[in-house]
Design a protein around this nucleic acid. Structure first.
Lengths: 140, 140
DNA sequence: ACAACTAACTTAGCCTGACTAATATTCCGG
DNA sequence: CCGGAATATTAGTCAGGCTAAGTTAGTTGT
């Protein structure tokens, strides 16, 4: 295994393609989409405003509006207003939304945990060591 | 760093979400989409049939039909017929398609290679060691 | 030999999720 | 108090995925 960035780039590229494919499959058939799950996660610690959510998910405001509309229709979030500024709409979890969030989180983690359990302790250690490096990619 | 699959699952989940986001951004603004690039790559070593392409990309046939239609409209691939079986349509790269494939490949690898260059040799080694493990995930 | 089945594609219609442009509403500074 | 900035929403477009239905071409069984 030579320290050749170009060769490594090809391998990383291939593995990431595989993982993206995986993530999509994992999502399929679940009660909410992965985007919706992410948004619910952002609301876990209290109400947020639309602009915050859009920025946090690196999405334009209209896209977030549509997402929140769907979540609101599904009864998982509720819109409110900021008493200090009538322009801002706040979004918060409903009880049902919180329940759903926790249920999906449990299911997802259980699945991934199961796959990690199938690895050897050494493999898990290797993976754990590489995570900070992977996280660094793209921050340049 | 304890060997706790559940905790590791949370971290892996977070890192993957970040990387997926990255991959999408990397794609934006390029002359072809990442799906189209993948399909062109499948054609690199000769003509393929529609069903093969659909299976290889884990997509339904109609979806592949639409993709190939777009690539054909763009002049990057050409449809042909199998002389042995008139039901099958073959797809192959045009000269322009091959040029585009190579150009995009160069650009993509250059970008990722650049990011990997910014890492230390130790970080690259850590990453290289973890790739086989990541590739194993989801094969269960 | 020919009817029935299977295989390979395409077409049509629908959904999610992203974008930009245009609009309404509200806030704030001079 | 008026003009510009900020916050959201609506409308329209596009990519990319799906299923269902239709077409055309081989294959099989009697």
């Amino acid at each position: 295994m030579s320290d050749d960035p170009t060769h490594l780039a090809e391998q990383v590229s291939a593995v990431l393609r595989h993982l993206v494919f995986l993530l999509r499959r994992t999502t399929a058939g679940q009660p909410i989409t992965s985007q919706q799950y992410s948004v619910l996660g952002s609301l876990e610690h209290g109400p947020r405003r639309m602009t915050e959510l859009a920025e946090e998910h690196a999405v334009q405001l209209p896209t977030m509006t549509v997402q929140i509309n769907r979540l609101e229709d599904a009864g998982l979030v509720a819109r409110g207003s900021d008493p200090a500024d009538a322009r801002v709409r706040t979004v918060e979890l409903t009880t049902e939304g919180r329940d759903r969030l926790l249920a999906v989180r449990r299911a997802r983690l259980a699945r991934l945990t199961g796959e990690l359990d199938a690895l050897t302790p050494e493999e898990r250690a290797t993976l754990a060591a590489a995570l900070p490096v992977l996280a660094k990619l793209g921050r340049s």
